[in-house]
Design a protein around this nucleic acid. Structure first.
Lengths: 216, 216
DNA sequence: TTGGTTTTAAGGGATTACCCCGAATTTTTT
DNA sequence: AAAAAATTCGGGGTAATCCCTTAAAACCAA
């Protein structure tokens, strides 16, 4: 028997969910909470397999609730439910331990499918949500592609030096590592500063990490 | 009339694609190439709207071909086609300008849908591919969550100093910016080095960026 | 109010990074 | 083969960072 907790401030919606789930003999709704604090309180006193969590809870955000759940109730899974197909909501709550994200216009079949998928250890996302995420990925990629393009050609040796700088090697240590003179490494450093338009090592590291020039 | 170039070393598969597309009056297959270099050569001499590009071309990788296309033929779009639903393949070629990724077991209907979607400026991914990507996102998230946890408490002032270090400010400049003494900033630097277990500024920047302590 | 943390500040010394100059050798590209 | 770029190595100097210790004032919580 799977124990389910519904956390949503809209009573009517929670009723709808509950009526759907109660028709299933393998599922049991063990509680309903209207806000974040009461949800966490309930979880302290009851064993729950899966929480159907509204992302936009009043007062305490669903994101914070989710964070707390995945921190303190490792065996309890979270299925995020929301009115909004917003990329920021989706990524935010997924980054805090939710195993799935569905919209409130989701039908009975899909809801049950989502629950079973998550109970099986897989993740589940509505079709629409998936599309939103993928679009977001494309956008961020192309956007960053355009802004970070003006990076000059870094030679093989310069890249080696840069990677060691990122690894906190001093100039002397880099020289030893690469079997070259201290002065040679200083040359590469200077060239890197000029090429990447940085003022010091901090800038080199920042640019290296922004452009993922680390070990590749 | 949409001009299509097929780049695939499997003649039989290219034939199949071609026969599907030739049934469409709005689409025209203007060429077929069997490897990377000939694909790029063809594009130099012909205007092409969309390239159906096999990711696993012999010799020159499809990723490199795609990179060249998006660099030198901005108006030509790329639809990646592959036998393999591998996350590394998908992310790699998407990061090099491809607008879509479908598998070779894709049917006629979906192929046409993918082409039209991409021509319309949208991105397109097969259902299976989408699932793979989403799973990969989940995995990387949970993995990074576990590894980057042990970071000590950084005070408000220390975080300010750290953020300015990342912005390539020198110690003196940070002192001016925050209206405090040079020696005070040096104290904060030392404390940061100790707390974050770093050896120098490079390490501070790396840790700051890994843990996203920059402006927040 | 007492104790812990933070923020502020300082001296002095050691180490490292950064800059300007030049230059030889090797590799790559044309 | 010639040109360009990359790699190598110096000298000398300035600026910045790092290390160690100490400590007062401010703040916050028990």
């Amino acid at each position: 028997m799977t124990r389910i907790l519904i956390a949503d401030d809209h009573a009517m919606f929670a009723d709808g969910i509950a009526s759907i789930l109660e028709a299933e003999t393998s599922l049991e709704v063990v509680g309903r909470c209207l806000d974040g604090p009461s949800t966490l309180e309930f979880l302290k006193n009851n064993e729950v397999d899966i929480v159907l969590l509204d992302v936009n809870l009043p007062g305490m955000s669903g994101i914070d609730v989710c964070k707390d759940i995945s921190a303190n109730h490792k065996s309890t899974k979270v299925l995020a439910i929301s009115m909004f197909n917003e990329e920021s909501f989706v990524t935010e709550i997924l980054n805090n331990g939710a195993m799935g994200y569905i919209l409130k216009n989701t039908g009975r079949e899909e809801l049950l499918k989502a629950i079973n998928t998550i109970l099986g250890g897989q993740s589940y996302f509505s079709e629409d949500v998936t599309q939103t995420i993928m679009k977001g990925l494309m956008k961020s990629r192309t956007a960053s592609k355009q802004t970070q393009k003006p990076l000059p050609k870094i030679s093989r040796r310069e890249k080696e030096v840069l990677q060691l700088i990122v690894k906190e090697f001093t100039t002397q240590e880099i020289a030893n590592e690469l079997f070259i003179s201290l002065k040679t490494v200083e040359s590469h450093r200077s060239n890197l500063l000029a090429k990447l338009n940085a003022r010091n090592s901090a800038g080199l590291v920042r640019i290296a990490m922004e452009n993922k020039l680390i070990e590749s």
